[in-house]
Amino acid sequence: MSKYRLNRLFNAQSGRALDVAVDHGAFHEHSFITGIEDMAQTVSTLVDAGPDAIQLTLGQAPLLQSVPGKKKPGLVLRTDIANVYNDPLESPLHSIHVPDAIEIAVRLDAVAVCVNLLDLPGHPEVREQCIRSILALRSDAERFGMPLMIEPLVMQTKPGSGGYGVDGDTNKIVTLVRQARELGADLIKADPTDDIADYHLVVQAAADTPVLVRGGGRVDDRTLLERTQAVLAQGASGIVYGRNVIQHPNPAGIIAALMAVVHEGASVDDAVALIGGTR
């Protein structure tokens, strides 16, 4: 079944998308909500900046969908809650999906839903929970024509702490992306590889499933834009950036720069010039 909702996610001219993730409050980690304490103001700022989509939880999605008019960004709805980002870690670890998430997404007029596929060393039970969630969501997603974005995240223990961080190992990312494809993803949201020149292998593993590249932790503007340019050149269909946008001193400026790279093929220098203010 064709997922017509994706026509509201991907730009008609470039065929690409910029989704700004603002679902961090779902994960019960205080550092994640820095810069988004006032969600009403955050969503208003993002709507004015005009990315292709904003990724929100079921509790915050009405802030976007109550905005009148046809031109607001599309809604990507987060459908699961996990406690794997805390430092130190809680026990036991869990990843739980909202049972009626797809029907909620339909009522909220979402363009897609997002669910994790977590690979944590020493905790295969968390990946099992994710797979069960994906299979349950997949059934309803097919029934209602709702695109399912799977987020395969390969993680590793942070040195000197009990928490987890991103593992950029190419082989591990490729393997988990391939599993996401096998599970029936309509979209895949994947981390960049440590060696960014390897990213075409991630795109290859996804086959004809569009890959949107995850932003992860904060980096400087030029690094972010260069990385964006590199993954797009290797076949990525867009980006899903959170903290690099919402914790930026000028969110509207960095969105303008990213949109220029994603949709217009702008150079990094030209994109940096669009940011203005503090870099």
Rank of each mutant, 00 (worst) to 15 (best):
A82D: 12
G69Y: 02
E90Y: 09
H24E: 11
V20N: 03
I254H: 05
V67M: 07
I275L: 00
I173Y: 01
D169A: 13
E264G: 12
A271K: 02
L56M: 14
D167C: 07
T209I: 14
I33Y: 03
Y85C: 14
P92Q: 05
D208A: 11
S267T: 15
S14Q: 04
T45W: 00
A190Q: 01
A136G: 13
V20H: 01
G168K: 14
I255Y: 02
P121H: 07
E103Q: 13
S14K: 03
H30G: 14
S237Q: 09
P249M: 08
T79I: 15
I254N: 00
V240W: 00
N171K: 14
N86R: 15
S133A: 14
A230Q: 10
P62T: 02
I188H: 00
A207C: 09
K158A: 09
V154F: 00
Q229L: 13
G168R: 10
R227I: 11
G50K: 08
Q179F: 05
D109G: 02
V177I: 04
K72V: 15
S139A: 15
A206C: 03
D194I: 08
Q13K: 15
A230M: 10
D191C: 11
Q65G: 09
I81F: 08
L258Q: 05
P251C: 06
D38A: 03
L153A: 06
L117N: 03
S44V: 06
D221K: 01
L58F: 08
D169H: 14
V262P: 02
M259Y: 06
N83Y: 04
L232H: 01
R107T: 12
D208H: 11
P99I: 04
G163Q: 07
I81M: 07
E125L: 05
V213Q: 02
D186S: 07
E264Q: 14
T34P: 03
C114E: 07
P92N: 04
I275P: 02
Q234W: 06
I54E: 00
I33F: 03
D38P: 10
D220H: 12
T34H: 08
M39D: 05
A180Y: 01
V47P: 01
R178L: 07
A256Q: 06
G160A: 06
A105G: 10
P68S: 11
N171T: 12
R279A: 10
L224I: 13
P62N: 05
G145N: 04
T57C: 09
F144P: 12
R178N: 11
